[in-house]
Computed example of a mutant assay.
Amino acid sequence: MQTLRVNGHDMAYLDIGGSDGPPLVCVHGSLCDFRIWNAVLGPLTRSHRVIAVSLRHFFPEPWDGTGETYSIEQHVLDMIAFIEQTAPRPVDLMGHSRGGHICFRVAQRRPDLLRKLILAEPGGELDESLDPDYRPGPSPLAARFAASAEKIATGDIDGGLEYFLDALEGPGAWKRLPATPKQLLRDNATTLIGQVRDQRAPFTKRDAEAIRTPTLFIGGANTKGLLPKVLHALATHVTGSEIAMIEGTTHPMFEQKPQKYCEIVLDFLTR
């Protein structure tokens, strides 16, 4: 593990593999950190240099959930500053879930830093220009996340995480989860407190049309709820984008079928 000083913060990251080509920078999602990419590091680093970051306030940084420095905006600024210090540039950028949202916003603001963009079920909401069923206010999923954060804030870490994961993956998801990924979620549990305070802007048609970086969207064919809707709505309006759906997987598709995920990513990066 290494650290890089970014906007007054020491950002932890892994830098693995070797290649003269563009580095592949990986951004994790909610309640995760750079360890979430472990299942795909082997295949990816055989031909690419992979840099997996841990965002501000995530493991290994201890955080109690207080303060106003946890937000999409802060994480976007941190990623821009991190990539500005990465050589060579431009880089390939890959994000999962909330990390996909962050990568999308980086591509909006600083396309000069990027060669290719990979978004694995980017998290977020759609506005009325992308969703004919749009209703103002938080989504039902956001309300579930808020309830999870309330439990975590009172010290009921496992209870809050169970509520969160079952909302995302279906009833019983937390109980079925092995011990190691459970501990990863516990290590980042307080970040959910910050996330529910984050007033992130919804995706708009204009946002999607502004992306000019070659983009690949990856989804789990069995993922339910809002995430597939967001993926397909964005892909429809990102010029020239591609979609790959992985059969037999849900939101953590690169953990469920890492070999297939890597095949798709490597094919996209080498074209």
Rank of each mutant, 00 (worst) to 15 (best):
T66Y: 00
S54F: 05
F82M: 01
P88G: 10
Q74M: 07
R46K: 14
I102E: 06
F82N: 01
H48N: 09
M94L: 14
R98N: 13
D78T: 09
A107P: 09
A12K: 05
V76L: 10
D92L: 05
V27A: 10
R89Q: 12
C26K: 07
G99I: 09
D15W: 01
E68M: 03
H75G: 05
A39P: 03
S71M: 03
L93W: 06
G95N: 10
D64L: 03
G95W: 08
P90E: 13
L24V: 12
V106F: 10
R46N: 11
S71I: 02
C26A: 09
G95C: 09
Q85K: 12
E84D: 05
D64T: 03
A81M: 02
E84W: 00
E84V: 02
A52D: 10
E73A: 15
R110T: 06
S30E: 07
Q108D: 04
E68F: 03
D78N: 10
R56V: 13
C32P: 00
I36C: 13
I51K: 04
L44I: 02
I51C: 04
P43W: 11
D64F: 03
F58A: 15
P90W: 14
H75I: 06
V91D: 11
S30D: 05
G29H: 00
L14Q: 01
R89T: 10
L14V: 01
D78W: 11
G67K: 10
M79N: 15
A87W: 06
G99Q: 06
A52I: 08
V40I: 09
F104C: 04
S47M: 10
D10R: 09
I102H: 04
D92H: 14
A52Q: 09
H48K: 05
D33F: 04
F104Q: 01
I51N: 06
Y13C: 06
R35D: 14
G29L: 00
G100Y: 07
F58Y: 15
G18H: 14
A81R: 07
G65M: 03
P90Y: 15
P43N: 14
